[in-house]
Amino acid sequence: MKKLLLSLAVLSTASLFVGAANLNLQQILNGDPLALEILFSSRLPRLLAILLAGAGLSIAGLVMQQISLNRFAAPSTTGTIECAMLGYVISLVFFGEFSQLWLVFSSAIIGTLGFIYLIQRIPFKNVVFVPLIGIVFGNVVEAITTFIAYKYDVLQSLNTWTVANFSHILRGDFELLFIAVPMVLLTYVFATWISAAAMGKEFAINLGLNYQQILILGVLLVAIMSASVVMIVGQLPFLGLVVPNLVSLYYGDNLKRNIPLTAIYGALLVLCCDLISRLIIFPYDMPIAIVMSILAGGVFIILLLRDRTYA
């Protein structure tokens, strides 16, 4: 744990000093106003956004895996992200401007809840089936979004929004991401309940818990966390899926202990990917989504193929 936090601190510091504009410790200590301006309006917000998005989305994946009883479920494999985008397009088309946060949140919540109820009704023979259906479900919602976007000519703004990028994060437009902090804390507080629900409906009811309430709480956590990340940074493919799976691979399945670990590893992974994407064609930024999907997508495929329990 100590080593983890240390490497997080080192990488975070490194992240502060990487970028097109030159910035070094000397200037900051001397109180150079330009340097301080860069630090506080661009570099620090970017770092915070990375840490919050990484931690928040990984926790969202962890919770999703618990409540859907499937280890390949995550916001990107259950349609949550696509539902959030549908909400965004609706708010864009019907309210002119993007200010209807409640619409994005509620469509993400409704979509996720709907999907969870759906997969509970269908007896799946195969673990892999849930993410498969989830991704196809996401594609369906995306088709609806595209239909609306095409008709009202907002396809362009939708596209720029979906590819994750931290380079445009400035002070003043990332603060919504702080919502991840209370969400992670809530998850931690309710960890025992959530892991009881993860044992199945009968088991939870047998323990005297209100299964429906836990389920709705879980969906709220997942939907709000992932919707806010998508809105501010864009899609980070497979992050919520890969991090909790890797953590449980090496540390076991104790939810209470895994929550902080998942948050830290998530932040660390996004930080690394962001550094790679900033350095690979320096001084230009490559969208982090590409680094992420190659890295996390690769890990996902390996996870799928090494998993033998459903074969």
Binding site: P131, I135, G297, I301, L304
Partner: peptide
């Protein structure tokens, strides 16, 4: 089914590459 999912993940990877 696993094969399909692997294909799907590759698809997302291709999509990212081409958008880049």
């Amino acid at each position: 089914i696993t094969l399909l999912l692997v294909g799907l993940v590759f698809g997302q990877l291709f999509a990212s590459i081409s958008s880049f």
